[in-house]
Design a protein around this nucleic acid. Structure first.
Lengths: 241, 241
DNA sequence: TGCCATAACTGGTCTGACCACTTGACCACC
DNA sequence: GGTGGTCAAGTGGTCAGACCAGTTATGGCA
């Protein structure tokens, strides 16, 4: 029996989760006013500061527009939300949103090769040790979820070597979205994380400062599972071209 | 004399800005504890809930680690922050951080062509009207800052046609970072936003459902100013290869 | 030396009060 | 008819004080 870490819950966090789910589910379309803080506090059985904290968090996430003296209105998060919203969209109610999953896969296939190329151009040679160690640990970990985590650690080192804060933060946001879904994706992602030789070849290209090779190898590595996953998503989704 | 909108300031917002600046400037290295909420409230001359609101916001942004009963500690935002932090890094104290600017330019050059390609594959044909109108308005706006804004509107339509929530939110985050710097970038970005013909050609490729052309045209369009800007940044920065 | 109790400190939440701002209604004046 | 002024009701913004929940360090005792 595996012991799991206890997830701490905070009241404002629970308010945020509940309101966010309501918004994403279309319960409050863009432009619609939310009930006042006082009303929400009463309806949810918490204090007004707890509601306020959740609403401020939603405001900073681009989900609502808060104006003193007036009602808090819902925004179109597709226009005003940032990438850090992605985790809340991938697993909205527990199951995976296929359109969100597809978009994440496409995004990482666009970004990964560029990041590998930059790593080969910039910090690759000095990252030889950590990259080799990361691949060795990836190879040694036979648990499907654990190996995915190792792959993420590998990519973290690559994006660190890329020396680009934008890609670094982007990676963090995508990882945050992806990480809770690791168990669900384990069997399909094996097509990627089990190709230890590809990780070694990519490492060699990065360390040897060959950006074109790094770009190509990363694209091949990420492209494999991406195609299979996209195919699976198309099959499930049914109405994609 | 041009009237400008009044920027509303909130106390927790000002606390957040001040603490964030302190963190980004290295005043509190990762792992360091921050003073307690009570101490910060006293030092800043505000109430504890105001401090608390700022700290919770920082916690959700990945800047600090808050644990009940213990001190709030500073995290390494490069590892725990998300893309939505980018606006705070590009203009930390008013001037532009060149490394951040460089990384944003690189990122948009990696993402833009892919987004254009997806738009040509998916929603391009049905977006003909809005794209044509966006280019017409871009051409008609002769103000350097205004034209950049029009270019952003154009790209917003392209990314909407791409039908990818990940790229959509990514665009939002990058735009949020980029927008306050528009005046400072106006003269250099003219090399891009003045190429009306290129925007028209890109629109035509997207609308005609030619993804390879769209990809190439977007890369050329974005690549031009990117190279010039990166060259300018290298000149200013001095120690880049 | 290890364990337990306690105190001090931290963050988490709440209540009630008051302030600042917005909106709509109504009135007076030009 | 349009503009400006006042007022009331409602909203969000902030604060003080109290109390709860959790963490950490210290001292005493077996």
């Amino acid at each position: 029996m595996a012991l799991e870490r206890i997830q701490r819950r905070s009241l404002p966090g629970e308010v945020y989760d509940q309101l966010l789910r309501e918004l994403v589910d279309g319960g409050y379309p863009a432009g619609q006013p939310l009930p006042s803080e006082r009303r929400l506090a009463e309806a949810l059985g918490v204090s007004r500061p707890a509601v306020r904290e959740a609403l401020q968090r939603m405001s900073h996430a681009g989900l609502v527009d808060v104006r003193q003296g007036g009602a808090t209105t819902v925004t179109d998060f597709r226009r005003s939300g940032g990438l850090d919203l992605l985790p809340h969209l991938l697993l909205p109610g527990g199951g995976i949103d296929l359109a969100v999953a597809r978009s994440i896969l496409e995004a990482r296939l666009a970004i990964g090769p560029k990041v590998a190329e930059l790593a080969a151009t910039r910090g690759g040679p000095t990252a030889a040790d950590v990259l080799d160690r990361a691949v060795a640990e990836l190879a040694a970990d036979t648990d499907p979820v654990g190996r995915q985590r190792r792959a993420l650690v590998f990519w973290e080192h690559v994006v660190e070597a890329a020396d680009s804060i934008a890609f670094r933060l982007m990676f963090n946001s995508l990882r945050a979205a992806y990480e809770p879904a690791l168990p669900a994706l384990a069997t399909v992602m094996a097509a990627e994380v089990d190709r230890i030789g590809d990780y070694r070849a990519l490492t060699a290209a990065v360390v040897a400062a060959r950006p074109d090779d790094a770009h190509r190898l990363a694209h091949d590595l990420l492209g494999n599972a991406t195609r299979e996953l996209l195919h699976a998503i198309d099959t499930l989704d049914g109405d994609r071209p």
